[in-house]
Design a protein around this nucleic acid. Structure first.
Lengths: 83, 83
DNA sequence: ATATAATATACGTTTTAACGTATAAACCGT
DNA sequence: ACGGTTTATACGTTAAAACGTATATTATAT
């Protein structure tokens, strides 16, 4: 359930998955966070230039949080995009 | 040991802690990541505009990773900056 | 106290995120 | 197949990150 995310792409995927799990569309997240639907779209697709404040706002809107920890030897199942 | 981080400030603190734990200075992280020492400084102090790619590069250099998970009811001990 | 190392800050430049607005493209359900 | 919904993309604008370079400030050790 917890999702390892080492790249912007993985982070975007985790966000998209949770958003869908909550039955929300990008526009509604945009409303909650005062970001544009286009911005949510960019974050979910893994834009590496996404700003940290933007990301934290989206995580909050989805009731997600980060944990920072030493890298684990990847159990491949937990890492979705290998390349 | 794992660090909950919901804000840029908390993320910066976790990075600084790990960097020091590894006995490295900002310049050496800058060298590894091809970022300026000044940029590392900004990230560690919690600059909310830090870009995701920048952050991921620094985490990699420190052998850290993110986990994304549903927000927990905060055990206050795990959250360092309450305000 | 002083030298040295480490970190924070400054200034001008280039690059780019997020913006508003709009539309195009993809994805439903019926 | 079609209409509505959702997501991706476009364009010009504004704000700001990261840059190189340099220096000021703070911390650490002797």
């Amino acid at each position: 359930m917890d999702q390892i995310a080492r790249t912007p792409k993985q982070i975007g995927d985790a966000i998209r998955r949770q958003r869908r799990k909550l039955g929300l569309n990008q526009t509604s997240i945009g409303d909650k966070t005062k970001l544009r639907q286009a911005t949510i779209s960019a974050v979910e697709s893994g834009a590496s230039g996404t700003q940290l404040g933007t990301l934290c706002d989206i995580l909050a809107a989805l009731d997600l949080e980060f944990v920072i920890r030493p890298r684990t030897k990847a159990k491949p199942a937990e890492i979705e995009d290998i390349f």
